[in-house]
Amino acid sequence: MKKYDKLIFVDSDDTDRAPMASAIMQKKYLLSPLKVCSRGLVVLFPEPVNQKAEAVLVSNGLTAKEHAATQLSQEDISGKVLLLTMEEAQKEKIRTGYTNALNVYTIAEYTGVSEDVAPLYGAPLSAYGKCYETLEALINRLVIQLNEEELKK
């Protein structure tokens, strides 16, 4: 029996880091299928992905062109959903603001890394490139971890 059915990357507004993480993860190989998406903690309307994030994704052979920012809702949370945030404060906001939010971690925490994924608000394109590299490394670790958990069953 699979531990998780769904993986949600969570960011502040679901326009840059979380959609990039989702796009990267969707191209990875997992031993068991896992629905992957992203959500935001404060989404006022369905914005597209940040242009700089999309440029970095495209330069790496990916896209989030069809992405529209979506608010994290109580319906997104269940025991079979893994929620990975970019920052510790986002994790705490979910734990205190949603019921039954049991599987909530920062992506760094879940993969055994010490640093959060830095916010990108107002950052230059080069920072988005660096963020992509950070997310790629974290997600590579995540894929190994999820596949190992699947093999242990």
Rank of each mutant, 00 (worst) to 15 (best):
P119Q: 03
D116R: 05
Q71I: 07
K52H: 10
I144N: 11
G97N: 08
T111M: 06
S59A: 12
I139T: 05
K6Y: 00
K35Q: 13
K2I: 08
P124E: 07
L30S: 03
V36H: 00
K80E: 11
I144L: 14
I139N: 02
A137F: 04
S12W: 13
R95G: 08
V42F: 14
G61F: 10
K93M: 15
L31H: 12
G79V: 06
V49S: 05
T63S: 13
Y121H: 13
E88W: 09
S114T: 14
L84E: 02
E115H: 12
G79S: 09
S38P: 01
L138K: 12
M20F: 03
E148V: 13
C131E: 00
D16Y: 14
K130T: 15
K153D: 07
Q90H: 12
S78A: 09
I139D: 01
G122S: 06
S32H: 13
S12F: 14
S126Y: 09
K2W: 09
L142A: 02
E148H: 08
K6L: 04
E115W: 10
S12M: 13
R141E: 11
P33L: 10
H67P: 00
P46L: 02
E75A: 13
S22I: 01
V58P: 02
D11Q: 07
V81N: 04
L44Q: 10
L138Y: 11
P48V: 09
K35M: 11
V56K: 00
P48Q: 06
A21C: 07
H67D: 04
S38H: 04
N100A: 13
R39D: 00
L57T: 02
N147K: 05
E75I: 08
Q26T: 10
T99P: 04
Q26Y: 05
A101N: 03
Q71V: 02
V81L: 00
L7K: 00
T63A: 03
N103R: 01
C131A: 09
L62F: 11
R39P: 01
Y132D: 00
N100P: 06
K93W: 11
A108Y: 06
D5C: 04
L120Y: 01
C131P: 00
L135F: 06
L84R: 02
S22R: 08
K152I: 11
A123G: 08
A123C: 10
S38G: 05
A53E: 02
E133P: 02
K153Y: 01
G97L: 06
A68V: 10
Q74G: 06
L84M: 06
M20L: 05
G97P: 03
L30Y: 07
V49R: 08
D5G: 10
V104R: 00
D76L: 04
N100M: 12
A89P: 11
L83F: 06
P33N: 12
S59C: 09
S38E: 00
S32E: 15
L125N: 07
R17C: 06
E109W: 03
L34W: 05
A69I: 00
T15L: 08
T106L: 02
A127C: 11
E54H: 05
C37M: 13
N50G: 06
L83H: 00
E150R: 05
F9W: 07
